[in-house]
């Protein structure tokens, strides 16, 4: 069953991030996908995440689709103008990609080609509107297409960010323009997440809560300081600190993720895992949280 059907039925879904390789060796990326395929409903393929050069998202998406798994094409506004975005979307549809996640994209200076010219011809709300236009058989200029798309369109929201006001407004605008599901930044504070959900529940768009397994207390502190919207509570950091060996840390990390998933599950329609290299933990996390 496809992601859109699962969500339409009210099923609780699991999506997971898959990063394209830095280079042309695709084996590892496809291996990871294969290993997780029985636990995960769809794979988000990142689009030059953090502005670091990698293979195109659509290419890995197409390879994943060819293997019979379901990809979600992440698309940022950073590198392509409205022509290139639409061209890639049409191509992606022809290659069997049915889900798109529209994002703004990080600024190029954060990545490994800091001198790159930022594009941002469209913003994420306009990108959503553009995808919906292609779904209606028209391009952004209103010209008729020979063969339209029928993308299932997702968007992102960062529920931990302060102040939340402007982000909620933008989320509403995304839903109004045709976002059909939302994936969130990593959640560590389920109470704050619940508060956020209460504020937007009238939208009636499925929300998938983001989950990033912690590798160490240091990583948690780093994210708290440097990543907008991530707030790992001090108790959780201490839990990680008490784990002395790598094995212990993995075990703790799985427990923390499973606990958060159980806590947020009643308030959302799925979870979105971002394993950051710890793909191996995904089956255990899902098992311990009662999802498999």
């Amino acid at each position: 069953m496809r992601l859109r059907e699962r969500l339409a039925k009210g099923e609780f879904v699991v999506t997971c991030e898959a990063a394209p390789p830095k280079g042309t060796d695709i084996e590892k990326a496809l291996e990871d996908v294969k290993k997780l395929a029985s636990h995960v409903h769809a794979f988000n393929v990142t689009d030059l995440q953090s502005s670091v050069l990698r293979m195109s998202s659509w290419a890995l998406c197409a390879l994943i689709a060819r293997e019979g798994y379901e990809p979600i094409l992440q698309m940022t506004c950073r590198d392509r103008n409205r022509l290139a975005l639409q061209a890639d979307l049409l191509g992606a549809w022809a290659l069997g990609i049915e889900n798109v996640l529209a994002l703004t994209g990080d600024y190029p200076t954060l990545g490994d080609h800091p001198g790159a010219r930022p594009v941002f011809d469209l913003d994420s709300v306009q990108l959503i509107a553009t995808i919906q236009a292609l779904n209606q058989g028209r391009d952004l200029a209103g010209n008729e297409l020979q063969g339209s798309t029928d993308f299932f369109v997702g968007a992102v929201v960062n529920p931990g960010v302060e102040p939340l006001g402007p982000h909620v407004l933008k989320m509403r605008l995304k839903a109004e323009r045709g976002a059909q599901f939302f994936q969130t930044q990593a959640v560590y504070d389920s109470e704050a997440f619940r508060k956020f959900i209460r504020e937007v529940e009238d939208l009636e768009v499925p929300i998938l809560a983001g989950v990033i397994p912690l590798k160490s207390a240091k990583m948690a502190r780093f994210m708290n300081e440097h990543i907008a919207g991530i707030r790992v509570p001090e108790e959780v950091i201490q839990e990680m600190e008490r784990a002395k060996t790598k094995e212990e840390r993995k075990k703790r990390s799985v427990e923390i993720c499973a606990r958060i998933i159980r806590e947020v599950k009643p308030y959302c329609q799925g979870i979105h895992l971002m394993p950051m290299g710890w793909e191996g933990l995904v089956p255990e996390i899902l098992e311990l949280s009662g999802l498999t």
């Binding site: 600024y107 930022p118 982000h167 407004l169 933008k170 605008l173 907008a228 919207g229």
Partner: peptide, 28 residues
């Protein structure tokens, strides 16, 4: 810096821009 037209990107935090600490987020 991204010239967005519909509110802040996900990098806006505590009124600061994701580009550099201390730089106000224009959308905030």
């Amino acid at each position: 810096p991204k010239g967005l037209l519909h509110g802040p990107c996900g990098g806006s935090q505590n009124g600061e821009c994701e580009l550099e600490p201390g730089r106000p987020c224009g959308w905030q």
